[in-house]
Simulated scan of single mutants.
Amino acid sequence: MTDEYGLLDTDPEAAIGDEWEEIDVTDTEADRIARERDRKFEEFEAQIKDAEQFKVEQSVFDDATFGALYKLVADDHIEAFGGPISTGKEANVYEALGADNTEVAVKIFRINASPFQQMRTYLEGDPRFEGLGSDKKAVVLAWVRKEFANLQRAREAGVRVPAPIAVERNVLVMELVGLVEDRARRLAEVTVENPETAYEVVREYMRRLHTAGLIHGDLSEYNMIIHDGELVIIDLGQAVTIHHPNAGDLLRRDCENVAAFFSRQGVDTSGNDLFAYIAGDDDRVRW
């Protein structure tokens, strides 16, 4: 692992804070396409169903999911599908070819099998999703749009995360960090050659997230990856705003996890020190 961890420069004119974007979780164009099936859509659906990389996981797809993929292809966000990168209880991730021959990741969330109650605990208290209710479909679709919005906000704050490209219903398209045959490695999987520098980058990214009003909520050596000398933070679906009722507890847990990992690498730090650096005197999240 190199000592160049790619700390991003920030644009002072793009600073963001406590304001929150409106996030629409009503039916999307994909739902309309699924309801108003036409010949081209049915041909596309048949092609996807017959594709070798999708045959194992047919349970992920319903008509509206095919509609979402159809819309993303029509909008030139996806040119061709590749093989699966990962499968999980929340989502399947596939490699794909995007616009201008770029490699992208297509994350397809499961409507029926996603950890619905766990998702709700992170959504409740988020000012972007007030009055969401307990409908499973609405919760999962809100979660997908939440991850897209969190990635956008993190990028604007100067945090190296996968660049979000497009979202449609339960499908998220984002930058693919590392190809399948040359995948990026989680921090837990590599030998950290310069842990002090890596720690400085991580704590600065945590501070920037907090300044932008976000807390990762599940940060550890398993949600940070290294690729081409860059340290990238991933899995921002569960990230909450600083107004979330559990924001303080989640930030404390992130600080303890990160400090514990780097302490094992020989860095002189603690959860208390890291929390103080990130939140300072912010009364909204207290130690």
Rank of each mutant, 00 (worst) to 15 (best):
T2A: 13
G6N: 05
D11K: 13
E13Q: 13
E13M: 14
I16Y: 02
D18Y: 13
E19L: 09
E22I: 14
E22H: 11
D24L: 09
D24V: 11
E29P: 13
E29I: 12
D31P: 00
I33A: 09
A34Y: 03
R39F: 11
E42A: 07
E43H: 11
A46G: 08
I48H: 01
A51L: 14
E52C: 00
K55P: 03
V56A: 13
V56I: 07
Q58F: 01
D62M: 01
D63H: 11
A64S: 14
K71G: 00
V73G: 04
A74L: 14
H77Y: 15
I85H: 01
T87C: 10
T87A: 15
G88H: 03
N92D: 14
E95H: 14
L97D: 06
A99H: 15
T102L: 12
E103S: 15
A105Q: 03
V106F: 06
I108M: 01
N112S: 14
A113I: 11
R120K: 15
R120C: 12
R120Y: 12
T121F: 07
P127W: 02
P127G: 01
F129M: 06
G131C: 02
A138F: 04
V140R: 00
W143K: 05
V144T: 10
K146Q: 09
F148E: 05
Q152P: 02
A154F: 03
E156V: 13
A157M: 02
P162N: 08
P164G: 01
P164R: 10
A166H: 08
V167I: 08
V167Q: 00
R169M: 06
V171Y: 01
E181G: 08
R185F: 11
R185M: 15
R186W: 02
L187H: 03
A188V: 10
E189V: 06
V192H: 08
E196C: 08
V202S: 10
Y205H: 12
R208T: 00
R208Y: 08
L209N: 08
H216A: 06
S220R: 01
S220Y: 04
E221S: 14
N223C: 07
M224F: 03
I225Y: 04
H227S: 11
G229N: 09
E230M: 09
E230C: 13
V232N: 03
I233F: 10
D235N: 04
D235Y: 03
L236V: 07
Q238C: 12
A239V: 10
A239W: 09
A247M: 06
G248P: 10
D254A: 05
C255I: 04
N257Y: 02
N257F: 06
G266T: 02
S270R: 00
F275I: 00
I278E: 08
D281K: 11
W287F: 12
